[in-house]
């Protein structure tokens, strides 16, 4: 059962990244591209949490109960990293969306192949 859970979590993470990359590369709409970027990020964040997980582990809080027990703790470092990564991803998405708004007002379209004042 646990093995199935592990495989499905890793599988979901990889699938999310692939879906995100597909959206970034294949979609023409600027908003869909930004959504794609966000999905890639989510996949990576899931991978982070999955890697830090220890089977039957408890929360990594230093308390008297944990001190004497033999029970494993999950690795707190990837969780701390993923929190930071989520905040960064949020900031990038916000900047990307504001750029999309600017582009839409300027060109009156959100299709990426119609915006080509610069060489792509």
């Amino acid at each position: 059962m646990n093995e199935f859970l592990t495989i499905s979590i890793y599988g979901t993470a990889v699938a999310l990244m692939l879906i995100g990359f597909y959206a970034v590369l294949a979609k023409k709409n600027l908003l869909k591209i930004v959504i794609g970027l966000s999905i890639v990020d989510s996949g990576l964040h899931l991978l982070f949490v999955a890697i830090g997980y220890v089977n039957n582990g408890t929360a990594p809080i230093f308390s008297p109960e944990v001190l004497g027990s033999t029970q494993a703790m999950v690795d707190p470092v990837p969780q701390a990293l993923v929190l930071t990564a989520i905040v960064i991803g949020f900031a990038v998405t916000a900047v990307a969306l504001s750029l999309v708004i600017r582009l839409y007002r300027h060109h009156n379209t959100a299709a990426i192949d119609e915006i080509k004042n610069l060489k792509w």
Binding site: I33, L44, I88, R102, L103, I115, N117, L118
Partner: peptide, 18 residues
């Protein structure tokens, strides 16, 4: 056309940070 250049930069930059 700064927004266009910035969006291009953001796409490549996000790939780098990934």
């Amino acid at each position: 056309d700064g927004a266009e250049a910035a969006f291009k930069y953001l796409l490549i930059g996000s790939f780098a940070s990934f």
